[in-house]
Nucleic acid binder design. Structure first.
Lengths: 389, 389
DNA sequence: TTGTAAGCGTTATCAA
DNA sequence: TTGATAACGCTTACAA
């Protein structure tokens, strides 16, 4: 951004002194250029059926008039609405410190706005409200497609969206990554996970417009466990997020698998589920540290709980990392401002969003559905992990 | 949410087995009810001109068919688009830990969705892109109104939106609260605030659709300063956010005014501007603590910087609060998970959003513009403030 | 109280 | 290559 002269208008010099009151339409262009409305439509949409000369003239007039397509008219004529939707189903108190979403949304927008597509954003309380939103958007023809976040192991949304024929990109993966029955995470001492209705995904007609962006949580968990194992840790606890979320279940399974491979005693390794809040993260940590054989390392499923865990340890006189190593899944400024700075799993969240948006746009252009893998995260080693005591 | 039988569909039992492929229209309703399309329109929009009996029948048929208005068609007929817009102009790296926005948005949605209004959300890099977005939305007729956040002392947006005649609610206030010339905040040692073009607001025709939700930053600052003063603090520094943001400038002015009233030495009181990042918060803190007469209390303009400040103090062996009291402007889980827990200014951010959305809806209904004051924040006393050393 | 018809700004289908 | 003309689904004068 240039500073310019004090009197310069802040959003560019091409701004006419007095913006037009009435928005120019194709008809205006047609009259001014002396052609028919349909010629204008063809010219402006790069379709055959108009000579290069008239096309150029029409373009010129359109530019001159500052014409922009009326999105309502477009949508009504069966074209795209130029909108995609994103619903975030989280109870209000859970929204908060997490940097994940704004980063993701910012990445999504980067791609969308380059393609003149708007994002309809909705925050709701629960899954039922989320599904209701999709139905409404579909009925109102508001969106051309949707991005689904927080996929669950038993997820009604893909089925619903497929039945509505709404092009969809699932950010994350509904699969658990193992065919073996899932070992359930033990509920935390405050067992308040919301009930997730067990809905077997309805059998779908094979070609439905749903792509998946897939993150290799298992590999990420392995990299964390291997790091801790090499440091000598043999008692490792995973403070997990909401059970029922697919990535939670994948991480839980990966923890089991990897520690089994390394020959750790299953009694010394487990996952504890929480609602991602600092309160439950702190409570679970307190509980663990008070146990007869406390873990020597804890992996937290988000940054907020990890920071809360550090505070609990400090409060109980348990030095981090000397007596307890801590790893945070997902990096953020938080992990850098605590003492000690937290070793954490760094993902390119904005990149994730860009990829997802790209895929949705492809789907809208008729591309076939597919599963894409997101870039592998890496473990950023800081000061909260060291040799086992 | 009830658990239901395993086979129950998750989003409610009223879902027909196979959703209709074609969306029902008013014409369908008219045919089925044996009336004219206009009768349907009147009935469904609560307008006079149909008998109670037919109205009831039409309603019934609409319900039965699961009719929902096509938003594109509505928008095209000159009605509302049923969408309002919100643009967040922040460089990607600045998005992040702050809980403020998701809270605000969640409050906004609560009100909007109760009135069947959608939120178009856009994240852009800077003010110029934000203005461009408004122009595009206006030209495309995408939104009925907008919510403007992060108002600045010299702000081109109200003028632009007025010239586009887009109903607008400014969240925050462009006024500084004093008529006296603003004392500028000293730039931090890393002076990287983005240049804000000095654009004198264009003189506007008086009746333009712009309301303001106003927060009394001065009163809030006074409550903080008074608290610190009573604890004996006489050297107080304010680590401010971005200069040019109206609330920053108001807080800076209020600090000056209140400390002057209390008779503090102006040399011992100042504001330092930052970009809200943990890095600049930490850097400013380091700088202050290394100075010959370090402050005994620091007020941070957001939670992230406050936490970073605590970490810096801890790293330099400065005990908080024994040697340094710390106050965070804006509460969040962060303030509760640090050691010590931070005394912070608690605002009802979601309520702020609800109020703003309510006001915008009123504006769309033709209500006159006005200035509304948001609820006063209160200071939540925790462990990071105590008597001056 | 009802029905008919025009219009909103596009896209799409025809003849010319 | 063009230019009428009919959708699209809704609102709204205006007529019956």
């Amino acid at each position: 951004m240039t500073t310019g002269t004090p009197a310069a208008n802040a959003d560019g010099p091409r701004l006419p002194a007095a913006p037009p009151r009435r928005r120019p339409t194709m008809k205006d262009i047609a009259e001014r250029a002396g052609v028919s409305p349909s010629a204008v439509s063809f010219a402006l949409n790069d379709r055959a059926g108009v000579s290069p000369a008239t096309r150029a003239r029409i373009r010129e007039v359109a530019e001159e008039l500052g014409w922009q397509p009326n999105s309502a008219a477009r949508a009504l004529s069966g074209e795209r609405s130029g909108c995609v939707g994103l619903v975030l189903a989280r109870p209000a108190h859970t929204l908060g410190v997490e940097s994940f979403f704004l980063q993701l949304v910012s990445g999504i927008q980067e791609t969308l706005s380059a393609h003149r597509t708007a994002l309809l954003f909705q925050v709701v309380e629960d899954l039922a409200a989320e599904c209701a939103t999709y139905r409404r958007w579909w009925a109102e023809r508001r969106v051309d497609g949707v991005l689904v976040v927080d996929p669950r192991t038993q997820d009604p949304r893909p089925g619903l969206l497929a039945s509505l024929a709404l092009p969809t990109v699932v950010i994350g993966d509904t699969r658990t990554g193992t065919d073996a029955p899932m070992p359930a995470a033990e509920p935390a001492s405050h067992p308040s996970p919301p009930a997730i209705p067990a809905t077997p995904a309805a059998p779908l007609p094979p070609p439905f417009p749903l792509s998946t962006i897939w993150a290799d949580d298992a590999a990420a968990m392995r990299s964390i466990i291997d790091h801790l194992y090499e440091l000598g840790h043999r008692r490792i606890v995973h403070i997990a997020g909401l059970p029922g979320l697919a990535h939670t279940d994948r991480r839980v399974a990966a923890l089991r698998a990897e520690t089994a491979r390394l020959g750790l005693d299953p009694a010394d390794v487990r996952s504890v589920s929480t609602d991602y809040s600092d309160e439950q993260g702190a409570e679970a940590t307190r509980h663990l540290l008070a146990a007869p054989r406390p873990p020597t390392a804890i992996v937290y499923d988000n940054d907020v709980m990890a920071v809360a865990g550090v505070a609990v340890a400090a409060g109980r006189g348990v030095p981090v990392p000397a007596a307890l190593s801590i790893v945070a899944w997902d990096d953020s400024p938080l992990c850098r401002v605590t003492h000690p700075r937290l070793t954490s799993l760094v993902r390119d969240t904005a990149g994730f969003g860009r990829l997802a948006a790209q895929e949705l746009l492809s789907l809208l252009d008729g591309a076939p559905t597919r599963r894409l893998q997101a870039e592998l995260p890496h473990l950023e080693l800081r000061d909260s992990t060291t040799h086992a005591p």
